[in-house]
Simulated assay, not measured.
Amino acid sequence: MSARRAGAALALVLALAACGTPEQPKAAPAPVPSSVPVTVPFKGLRPTSVKIHKIGAESSLLAVAVKPDGSISVPSVHTPMQAAWYKLSPVPGDVGPAIVLGHVDGDKKPGIFYKLKDLVPGDEVDVDRSDGRKLKFVVDRVTQVPKDTFPREAVYGNSDKPELRLITCGGAFDHAEHSYQDNIVVYAKLADA
């Protein structure tokens, strides 16, 4: 599947999925309860871990996909320190934007990407892969965007080089909607690519 097709399939669900309390847009189906397994074991080439030394974030990576109801599988909010890779996006290090998501919080505790908003251009993100490659990505930019104007093309659009997108929730928490109002998106490029 091309990065553009994968991005289009994901665009309506991912913008809200990587949050402490996942919510879908009003037009999309409600999320499946977190007791549903995240995914079956992924046997292909995949990223195995993500590390961001500056913010003390380190996690193995689950491989997740969009479920038949249109929502995306995400790690349980009861395990907020677990990050995930969207397996219909490129494998980090391959051409295109690889998507990694994580909770900002969950179960009244900080999540794996709690400090994602603190990254700045030049910060480094390490990703290990199942083939033994150890990759270094360099942050290009960090944005905070309202969920209703999520920059789909910028996040999921094709690129001619290996890139990485890290996504979590941010901004104010809307207690009535049980969701954060914004997303934090980190754009990074493979070092020396």
Score class of each variant (00 low, 15 high):
T168Y: 07
G93V: 09
T48A: 06
D118T: 12
P29I: 00
K26S: 13
H103T: 05
G56I: 03
K161P: 02
I112S: 06
Y114I: 01
G93L: 02
I55F: 05
P146S: 09
V66H: 05
A57E: 01
L190Y: 05
F173Y: 15
S2L: 12
R129Q: 07
A98G: 10
K108Q: 11
R165S: 05
P33V: 08
A57S: 15
A98E: 10
E124T: 13
P47G: 06
K26Q: 09
P151D: 10
K136T: 15
V127Y: 01
V100F: 04
Y180P: 00
T39M: 02
D182F: 07
S49E: 10
V95A: 04
I55S: 01
E124S: 06
P33G: 12
D107L: 03
D123E: 02
R5K: 11
D123W: 00
V138M: 03
A15R: 14
V74S: 03
D140T: 15
I167A: 10
M81I: 06
G111P: 09
P90H: 11
V120P: 00
M81Q: 13
A28T: 02
A176L: 11
R46W: 00
H53A: 13
F150G: 07
S49Q: 08
A84R: 02
K117I: 09
N183R: 06
P41D: 10
P68W: 09
V155K: 10
F150P: 08
S179H: 12
R133K: 15
L88I: 12
V36Q: 14
P90W: 11
P68C: 02
G70F: 08
K87I: 04
R5D: 12
S179P: 01
A9S: 13
S76N: 06
H175Q: 07
K109C: 02
K67M: 13
L135F: 06
A28P: 00
A98Y: 08
S35T: 15
K115V: 00
K189E: 14
L116E: 10
L10S: 15
A27L: 13
S59T: 06
A9R: 14
D182V: 05
A30I: 06
V142A: 07
P97N: 15
E163F: 04
N158M: 06
S34K: 01
Y86C: 11
L10D: 12
K147M: 08
I167F: 07
E163I: 03
R133L: 07
H103A: 08
A191E: 15
S159C: 08
V13Y: 04
D118P: 00
H178L: 11
H178D: 13
W85S: 06
